[in-house]
């Protein structure tokens, strides 16, 4: 068999392609059985892979508290207890107006060095826990917490990076309405929310959402949806 001369550049490209394919395969292979879904706000369900928050899964959010509140609002409205760890600047009034029930919201603003223990204790009893990790957790700790999440059926929402997150939600292109140059006040915004699947694999899903709309509710911006295919006569 004649040896085919392969240039180094081609070889690198191929290696890269293999790595990419492997990561896609890993992403598509479900590591766990499908776990039950938590009640999710329709706007967030439109973006999340699988169409709902999963019990026992971790999600990470890129620096938007409003998006975090949107994720919590769905479960909280249907009677799930929520916890917020390490977010001293969490705006309660916004949370209440966006539909999080303050009666069932517990805050641990300054967990200090014991943040991981405190989170684990809350995971035992609450349905959804929002966490802003003050430091990096070791791989062992993350694995233990993930096991606990699966066992208790609690969803973890992390503001920032999290190694085992099911999806990573980020926000881009915010457009505010109501504010002019020197007049008006903020009333609503639309933003593109993008969800990237586990390990960066899978096609990122994105949607244009009202975060929030004029009535302080979250919903999908229908005007930005691609037109649906319709049957036409020949």
């Amino acid at each position: 068999m004649a040896a085919v001369a392969v240039s180094p550049a081609e070889r690198d490209g191929a290696a890269q392609r293999v790595a990419e394919l492997q990561s896609r395969i890993r992403g598509m292979q479900a590591t766990t059985l499908e776990s039950p879904a938590l009640p999710t706000a329709p706007a967030i369900a439109a973006v999340l892979p699988g169409g709902a928050l999963r019990q026992g899964a971790a999600y990470s959010i890129d620096g938007s508290s409003t998006l975090a509140m949107a994720v919590l609002a769905g479960p909280s409205q249907s009677g799930v207890w929520c916890g917020v760890v390490g977010v001293p600047d969490f705006g309660m009034e916004a949370a209440a107006r966006f539909g999080i029930d303050l009666e069932r919201l517990v805050l641990v603003p300054d967990p200090g060095a014991q943040w991981l223990t405190a989170t684990a204790a809350l995971v035992d009893v609450l349905g959804v826990v929002l966490l802003r990790p003050p430091g990096r957790a070791s791989d062992g700790d993350v694995a233990r917490l993930s096991a606990r999440l699966r066992q208790r059926g609690t969803a973890l929402v992390v503001l920032g990076d999290w190694p085992t997150s099911e999806a990573r939600l980020s926000i881009s292109r915010s457009e505010w309405s109501g504010l002019g140059s020197g007049h008006g006040y903020l009333t609503a915004r639309t933003a593109t929310v993008t969800a990237t699947g586990r390990l960066g694999a899978g096609r990122p899903r994105s949607a244009r959402l009202w975060l929030p709309d004029g009535a302080q509710a979250f919903r999908v911006d229908e005007t930005a949806m691609p037109p649906r295919l319709q049957a036409v006569s020949a």
Binding site: G91, E103, V106, V108, D110, G112, A118, A121, L122
Partner: peptide, 29 residues
């Protein structure tokens, strides 16, 4: 169950470590 869990966190972080929120009056947020 929630109460027991929160009491555990409270005995770890102190009484003021676990909070609940309500909205009151005022001009500053």
């Amino acid at each position: 169950r929630v109460h027991h869990g929160l009491t555990r966190v409270q005995s770890m972080l102190g009484h003021e470590g676990v909070l609940t929120a309500t909205i009151g009056g005022g001009r500053m947020l």
